[in-house]
Simulated scan of single mutants.
Amino acid sequence: MNGHRYPAGLPMPAVCRTTLRDGRVLTVTATVRPRADRADVKCVVPGAPALGERMAEVVRLARLTEPRFDSRVQVVLGMDGVPAQGERNWELAAVLADRMARDVWRPAAGLEEVSALGWSEAWQLGRVDGYDAPPALPAAPPGAVLLLGGADLPHLGALTGHADPGAAVSAVRAWFPLHSGGINDALAWVEVSVSPLDGAEAGEEDTIAAVGVGVDAAVQQAVRQALAGARHFDGRGLGRWRTVVRFGEPRFAGDSYQLALVMADRLARGREFVPRGRLIATGSSAAWHAGQVDAVAGLDAKAALILAEARAGDRVLLPAAWGAALPPGWIDALRAKGASCACVERIGVI
């Protein structure tokens, strides 16, 4: 069933069960309530806050494959137990409980009890890769349905007889230098996944989510503001996309990732030419709505890191303010490795 349900009082919770590798049965419960400026998803696993964060990430990624978006409700999910380290069968159960709570999906009439086992390496594509087999599969008595990830349920579209939803998702990564002052310096990636949005009932920022354990509220807000501003400058990006942002390394400080973020978003939406190799960028902005690219700190260390890590085909974008301050011979050394570089003042004219 498609659509949304907004009861006046407390709604009945949606329940989906899962079975772990050791045979334990866990129950995932999802309840809808008015959002009231709270997070769109709240996950509670007593004694395991990191698992709660991971559950919220799974649910948000899977929502990317839904054609409609509504920000008026919060879904609260919880489990009545704690899976062992590395257990993942609960992932499909959490996704389905979330969808049942919002009436995005319901099992066929007469099937009131749902059990699901499954996990995915790419929930943002709607893919269900498989499940970890328990000693014995739970029985499916009359009035119950058992869903197994993988061969039986290869993707979330199969729940409603639709095509693979991953075909409608465009996901692109860009890289940025992550400088920590030592051996841990590295090129980190930011990935933007977009899917067409049908009838958004929210502002642009509400359709953008940054997910991942360690991505805090400040980063969430900065990501939303940067993309919403850059899309305003783009002139064609507003109100058309459901967006999920992931970071390869979510724990960092500063905003020098923002140019890479904005460029990954433009590439995902088909607004830029795709480079032969990676797109590596650093830069921030006080006015993304004007397309402006500002300088960031750490020029020498970041330039050295980019030069050391660059490969043939890579495209490097730096703030225009860095152009005259780059070390002598840096651009020639980069080109000798088969990479290219541009120092840009604005996006859209790269």
Rank of each mutant, 00 (worst) to 15 (best):
H162T: 14
A230E: 11
G52F: 02
A228Q: 09
E113K: 12
R68D: 13
P196M: 03
N184E: 13
A200G: 15
V82Y: 02
S193E: 07
L334Y: 00
A303N: 02
R127V: 14
V316G: 01
W123Y: 10
V316D: 01
T207N: 07
G203M: 01
A56R: 09
P83R: 05
A312F: 12
A264M: 04
G3I: 04
I347N: 01
A308T: 10
P250K: 09
G239V: 00
P154L: 08
G237S: 01
P7E: 06
G130R: 04
G157Q: 06
N2R: 15
S284C: 13
P177H: 01
W119M: 11
A218F: 10
R5E: 09
R278T: 06
V316R: 00
E57F: 03
V211C: 12
A218G: 13
A168W: 07
V344T: 10
Y257N: 03
S71T: 01
P7N: 05
P250R: 06
G338C: 05
E204P: 04
V296Q: 05
R21K: 12
P328R: 07
L146M: 11
R335N: 12
V316I: 09
S340Y: 04
G118Y: 06
A325S: 13
V15Q: 15
A218I: 08
A140D: 02
G298V: 09
V58A: 06
L92T: 07
M1G: 15
A8V: 12
C341F: 02
Q292N: 12
Y131F: 14
N89Y: 08
W175I: 04
F69M: 03
A139N: 12
P134G: 10
P135N: 08
L267S: 03
L227R: 06
V82P: 02
L61E: 15
R68K: 12
V128D: 03
V25E: 15
V215D: 04
A30T: 00
A174Y: 00
A336K: 15
G47Q: 03
G283L: 03
P107L: 03
W105F: 03
A48S: 13
V128S: 02
G161L: 09
G338F: 07
R311W: 07
F176V: 06
E112T: 14
V95M: 08
L279M: 10
G199D: 11
G157T: 11
C343A: 15
D216F: 11
G47V: 01
A217V: 14
T29K: 01
L279Q: 05
L96E: 04
V75S: 00
Y257K: 02
G149R: 05
G254C: 14
D98S: 14
G23A: 08
A14G: 10
S115E: 12
D129R: 05
R335M: 06
R127G: 03
R102Q: 14
D265C: 13
A48T: 05
V213H: 10
P138A: 04
D314F: 00
E191T: 08
T282M: 15
V211K: 01
P83G: 04
L26S: 02
F176T: 05
R99A: 15
G78V: 00
E66T: 07
A222P: 11
I347V: 13
A308Q: 14
D37E: 14
C43T: 07
L305V: 05
E249F: 09
V262L: 09
V223T: 14
T18Q: 11
C16E: 11
R102D: 03
D152L: 09
R127N: 04
V15L: 15
V344N: 02
P141Y: 06
D98M: 06
I208V: 15
Y257V: 08
D206R: 07
S115V: 10
